[in-house]
C-alpha cells in the first residue's frame, strides 16, 4: 500500500483553483476590494518592480472570502443584538424616562396630581441592573369634596382597568388617601420605584408641627416681609391692601 505522506491535500488545491478562477473570471470584483487611492500614486521602487506571481494575489482573494464571511457574521450579530439581546444592554437615562410615558403611568401621575402630589425628581441608575424611581412631593392638602372626587375617579379607573398593574397603582392612591384622611400624619413625599423591582416608599410627617424657636422667628420674619411686599404691590396697583384671610 502506497501512502503519499507529503502530497498536498486535494481540497487545498481545489480552494486555490476556485480563488484563481474568481480572479480570472471577475477581476473587477477583486479590484473593488482595493479601490484606487485618491492621493497621487508614488513612484514604483525597485523592490516593487518584481514579477508578479498569482500566489501573491492569494491574500486578496482570501480577503474577499474573509470580508464576505465577516459581513455575514456582522449582519447576523447585528440582527441578534437589535432584536434579541437588546434587553440585555443597559438603557440610557433618556430611554428609561421615556419608557414610563405610557397610559398606565400617565394615569398614575394624573391621579397623584389629583391627590395633591407633584413629580419632583426622577432617579435613574444606569448599569447592568437599571434603576428608575420617581419622587412626588405634596403640593396641596385635599378637602372632603376633593377626596370624594378622587375616590370616584379611582372607582371609574377600577372598572375600566382591572389589571394587576393598575390595581397596584390604585393601592398607592388608596394608601395615600387613607393616611392623609385618618390620624395626625400625612404623606409628605412618595417615591415610586419601577426598576429593578416595583416598590413604593411613603414618607410621613405629622400634620401639626410646632416650630422650634429659631424656625418660628424665621417664619415670622418671612411673613412680615411678604406682608410688606404685598402692601407695596397693592399700593402700586392703586387699591386697598387685601385682607389677611389666608395663611401662606
Amino acid at each position: 500500500m502506497i501512502v503519499h505522506h507529503h502530497a498536498i491535500p486535494y481540497w487545498i488545491l481545489a480552494v486555490l483553483l476556485i480563488m484563481k478562477s474568481v480572479w480570472a473570471i471577475n477581476p473587477p470584483v477583486a479590484a473593488a476590494i482595493h479601490p484606487p487611492a485618491i492621493s497621487p500614486i508614488p513612484p514604483i521602487t525597485e523592490e516593487q518592480d518584481l514579477p508578479v506571481d498569482l500566489v501573491d494575489e492569494r491574500p486578496t482573494s482570501v480577503d474577499l472570502v474573509w470580508n464576505y464571511s465577516t459581513r455575514t457574521v456582522g449582519w447576523v450579530w447585528g440582527t441578534l443584538r437589535d432584536n434579541v439581546f437588546s434587553w440585555l444592554i443597559p438603557p440610557t437615562p433618556a430611554s428609561l424616562t421615556s419608557s414610563v410615558s405610557k397610559k398606565d403611568a400617565n394615569q398614575l401621575f394624573k391621579l397623584l396630581g389629583d391627590a395633591g402630589y407633584k413629580l419632583k425628581e426622577i432617579y435613574t441608575d444606569v448599569g447592568i441592573i437599571p434603576g428608575l424611581s420617581f419622587k412626588f412631593g405634596q403640593v396641596r392638602e385635599l378637602s372632603e369634596a376633593d377626596y370624594e372626587y378622587l375616590e370616584s375617579l379611582v372607582i371609574d379607573w377600577e372598572r375600566l382597568n382591572p389589571g394587576v398593574y393598575a390595581s397596584l397603582q390604585r393601592k398607592i392612591i388608596k394608601t395615600v388617601i387613607a393616611v392623609n384622611q385618618s390620624g395626625d400624619y400625612q404623606v409628605a413625599t412618595l417615591t415610586v420605584k419601577l426598576l429593578p423591582l416595583p416598590d413604593v416608599a411613603f414618607s410621613m410627617t405629622p400634620k401639626q408641627v410646632f416650630l422650634g424657636e429659631e424656625s418660628s422667628t424665621l417664619m415670622r420674619a418671612i411673613q412680615r416681609v411678604e406682608r410688606s411686599i404685598r402692601a407695596i404691590g397693592n399700593k402700586d396697583k392703586g387699591k386697598e391692601p387685601l385682607k389677611e384671610t389666608r395663611k401662606d
Binding site: 389629583d114 403640593v139 396641596r140 392638602e141 372626587y149 384671610t245 389666608r246
Partner: peptide
C-alpha cells in the same frame, strides 16, 4: 377650582375651600 391653577396651588385645604 380644581381647574384654576391660582386656586389649586393654595396648599391648605381649609384656606383653599374658603377662597
Amino acid at each position: 377650582c380644581r381647574k384654576i391653577l391660582e386656586i389649586k396651588t393654595i396648599f391648605g385645604a381649609e384656606d383653599r375651600v374658603k377662597q
